[in-house]
């Protein structure tokens, strides 16, 4: 028996919007720790890891570990039927091939049940070791989204370079090239407007902008984004999901031949 009640149901709606472009089908895993997912895109270049910790739910019942295969487009269709202020509850019986999404309006005057078929998915799980990153950049998520969007109108790839001067995003294409430098800036009115650069050593890596732009679909989840870079490691682009967890996107770099 599984029953997860999330008062801030809009978080789940935003999570689905953030990952459904990248991944088509995925297994959602439930355990005592929380509700999680790890899935790669079809070309195995990008990976999304989601964790919503059990403590973040108003009610969290998971009698035994359960893996539920879902088509994310179909989950998104279901969740779009929930109001932004609705409380969302996920329910599944042991051995059932369906999951039920229950939507309750804030004043309890409307209650809806949407039952969705589960599917069997052969997913490949990758072990992601804890790593020391050479540079960690924390910046406003809207600013990062703007940079990725702007650069993708010029080129297909972005070079992200961190030096003591700041973080530089560069691209080049047929019509020309572009460089955007963001310096550390902590003298802002609100902490979420700050750009904070922690650098152990300079790092410069090249990534496909198409994936970066896909990651920025998570922007509505968090005012800030954290970009962790290390030579010869996939970049990690992390958005916090309120105080209950995170979405982390991993993207393999381009390799010089």
């Amino acid at each position: 028996m599984l029953e997860l009640r999330l008062v801030q149901g809009s978080l789940l709606k935003k999570v689905l919007e953030a990952i459904k472009e990248l991944v088509t089908d995925a297994n959602f895993d439930c355990s005592a720790t929380g509700f999680s997912l790890q899935a790669m895109d079809s070309s195995h270049v990008a990976l999304v890891a989601l964790l919503l910790r059990s403590e973040g739910f108003e009610h969290y019942r998971c009698d035994r570990n359960l893996s539920m295969g879902m088509n994310l487009n179909n989950v998104s269709k279901m969740l779009r039927c929930a109001g932004n202020d609705d409380i969302i509850t996920l329910k599944a019986d042991d051995g059932s091939d369906t999951v039920t999404f229950m939507f309750e309006s804030p004043n309890q005057d409307k209650i809806a049940d949407f039952e969705m078929k589960l599917m069997d998915i052969d997913s490949e799980h990758l072990g992601i070791p804890e790593a020391e990153y050479h540079a960690i950049v924390k910046m406003p998520s809207a600013e990062f989204a703007r940079i990725c969007k702007d650069l993708s109108s010029i080129g297909d790839t972005v070079v992200i370079s961190v030096t003591k001067e700041g973080v530089k995003f560069s691209t080049r294409g047929d019509i020309g090239n572009a460089n955007i430098v963001c310096r550390q800036n902590t003298t802002v009115d609100k902490p979420e407007e700050a750009t904070i650069i922690e650098m152990q050593e300079p790092v410069s890596l090249t990534f496909a902008l198409r994936y970066m732009n896909s990651f920025t679909k998570a922007t509505p989840l968090s005012n800030t984004v954290t970009i962790s870079l290390s030579s010869e490691l996939p970049v990690v682009v992390e958005y916090k999901v309120a105080d209950m967890g995170y979405i982390r996107f991993y993207l393999a770099p381009k390799i010089e031949d």
């Binding site: 270049v45 072990g127 381009k254």
Partner: peptide, 14 residues
């Protein structure tokens, strides 16, 4: 000239 890396080059199946 550069080629796109794949995640399996960095992370092993668990």
């Amino acid at each position: 000239k550069s080629s796109q890396g794949r995640l399996e080059s960095f992370f092993k199946p668990s």
